[in-house]
Nucleic acid binder design. Structure first.
Lengths: 328, 328
DNA sequence: GTGAAAGCGCTAACAG
DNA sequence: CTGTTAGCGCTTTCAC
């Protein structure tokens, strides 16, 4: 491996000068610059990032914590965040926790060990307080998960409100035996949605059926299986707020197969406005998340923070919009 | 920041001893070990990974190059690869190229700069030769893309063969006006599929319609748009091999909306056996890729390579299986 | 078993 | 404009 020292020797200057050439420092004569560059080319020199990172105490690398990439919401989120990080000169390391607490903790440890310049949290199975302990001087920012925002910055959707609005809407249309699907009900996000769901019922003084609260439903297959269990000739449920468009797609396909009219006998509403909502039959009503804006704001915010802009933790909330199609 | 030196001083031993304790070296008395551990705990010491990486010349980090995470095939692939890397103690950095050559080149440069211990290539817009130049002593392995395998190891599906088989099957069932969708026809993978498609026609001495070769069709929306353009009362096309299940789902939904009977008047076959193939109406015939096996073998292979197991480049080919449902 | 010392490749005062 | 020097935090011989 050819080092900066070799280049210095070979071109008859000092290491410092070579270093200056590399980092495009001013105060180096065009003549020596040319000379050094030539030698670097000839010897195919590439600076060793490991040494630079070590020296500068930064990795230009941001970690992102998600439950599972096969969930389209999270793969979209990672897509945008990763692309935005790239624009700002950062690489992204993706960590899937598969909802395992110890895997999550490992990532916080890596952060403490300086393996990343910042950590983006999109979902967590730990308490906000426990995460805060790992923070120290490290940058942790939450995106998607509806944390309180006492310890770190939060960017999220108005989960509670939008779920409440949609639930109210269904109730006022006469769908009164509603179901609710969650993925992992212990998370702040899912809790917020559930709260919205319940609040809407309370406002209308309608009692929701606790048997229609379904947890750990997150994939197309889960939706199909749930539908197959639920949908029969004398239907007890007349509407479902699914946790994602994929779950909703599974439910719709199951209902169609059992000849249950949507939306006449059963309303189904998804979450995320994924393109899959366009190919179900009938097309799906859903809720638009603003992941692209969220990601953009988030990465800008992190970059500012790295440049030393300090402030109390902020919480930015985006409004999810209901997109009505033909399943409600 | 508390360093190994602080711990040494505080516990009255030398740096070397502390280092030995950290890395669980033998030849250190249980007594000193205990003592040092205690001090580390009390002062909340975490080793600086940057220094370790620099010293050891390795990052425990593998880069993976993909076009775009929103494509479910690639997000699945990354899911498995990333999980397998984790099991072997590696982190994964995801790089989306969005089919941009210069972005791809940047990643090779980062590899040369020692930012990764290895690079996994799932899709490329460069020639095999050009990539090979960047290799040097670095580990590059291809997964999914159907490279020749002269310069680096390749793990891929028998794209040509399976496409030929499926095309032959449709032809022999009487579907003779077939279309073919590709994503990015310049890639080796798409070329292989097209070759299979054409070969099947030649064998049966049927001439394929060049107007039914559609390129740059990769999303659900692309499928819908293509369908809307193609499907009308007097249908000229009677079967389509789509490049992915998502495209196929778009096509099916478009056809259904135009009251075109599937599979009577039109056969559609997807690729990947993604769960979306279960919720289309009718359910989709598709081709199973073996990404889970591929990913597993691939990561094992890389780990072996890092441990110095040398051999000529290998090429491992997996057999895609046709899964017939109701769209063909 | 333990310590001293050298060094990984690079940057950044500081001095000239 | 350029060189000298010190040092980042850790591992690894090599003595003792």
């Amino acid at each position: 491996m050819v080092t900066i020292y070799d280049i210095a020797r070979l071109s008859g200057v000092s290491k410092s000068t070579v270093s200056r050439v590399i980092s495009n420092h001013p105060y180096v004569s065009t003549e020596t610059k040319r000379k050094v560059m030539k030698v670097m080319q000839e010897h195919n020199y590439v600076p060793n990032s490991l040494a630079i990172q070590f020296r500068q105490k930064q990795t230009k690398c941001i970690a992102i914590l998600i439950p599972d990439l096969s969930h389209p919401y999270f793969s979209q989120l990672v897509k945008y965040i990763s692309a935005d990080c790239y624009k700002s000169g950062f690489k992204t390391v993706v960590h899937q926790t598969f909802l395992d607490k110890s895997r999550e903790r490992e990532v916080y440890t890596q952060l403490q060990k300086n393996e990343y310049d910042a950590l983006i949290l999109t979902s967590s199975t730990l308490q906000e307080e426990e995460i805060a302990e790992f923070t120290g001087n490290n940058i942790i920012v939450a995106c998607n998960e509806d944390f309180r925002g006492d310890y770190f910055d939060v960017f999220c959707l108005n989960e509670e409100e939008v779920t409440m609005n949609v639930t109210s809407y269904l109730l006022s249309k006469g769908y009164t035996k509603l179901g609710f699907c969650s993925d992992n009900i212990s998370s702040p996000l899912q809790q917020a949605r559930l709260k919205g769901f319940i609040l809407a019922h309370e406002k209308k003084e309608i009692i929701h059926n606790k048997n229609f609260l379904f947890n750990e439903i997150s994939t197309i297959e889960d939706g199909i299986i749930l539908g197959n269990r639920l949908f029969k000739e004398n239907l007890e449920i007349d509407g479902i707020i699914a946790g994602s468009d994929f779950v909703a797609a599974g439910l719709i396909s199951s209902a169609v197969r059992k000849n249950i009219q949507i939306p006449q006998r059963l309303a189904i509403i998804g979450f995320d406005n994924h393109p899959i909502s366009l190919v179900t039959n009938p097309q799906m009503s859903t809720i638009c998340n603003h992941i692209q804006d969220m990601s953009n704001d988030l990465v800008n915010h992190i970059v500012n923070k790295m440049n030393g802009v300090k402030h109390h933790p902020i919480k930015k909330v985006y409004n999810g919009e209901f997109i009505e199609r033909n399943s409600s």
